[in-house]
Design a protein around this nucleic acid. Sequence first.
DNA 1: CTGGTGACCATTA
DNA 2: TTAATGGCCACCA
Length: 112
Amino acid sequence: MNPDRKIPKVYARIWGAVKKIPRGRVSTYGAVARLAGLPGQARLVGYAMFNLPEGSGVPWHRVVNARGKISLPPGRESARRQLALLKREGHRFVGGKIDLKSAGWPVRAFTR
DNA sequence: CTGGTGACCATTA
DNA sequence: TTAATGGCCACCA
């Protein structure tokens, strides 16, 4: 219970899109925004991730920025967790980033 | 109502 | 290649 805070509708929409990212793949804030029907609102996706409650079951770690890098400040706890989770799913960081052309999702968005 | 903010992005130089 | 800039808009105080 504790409905102290209501869950904004946009967040739910964004989280729903993030849940669709398959294991072993990653997406970007901009791509997630599009999937959620909110084109051009990448910043909102970041905002939604920041406000993501723990234990939500949303694979937030599969969302990286347009450069294929982790957007969190290096050294921060969540950043290390994200890195660990991604490696655990078989991702390889070359030059500190993931190759979106091969691991990006939806594939369509990164293969043209 | 207003103004500040942000786990972003594409463009430009 | 990097750095700066404007745009985007829900959320919050």
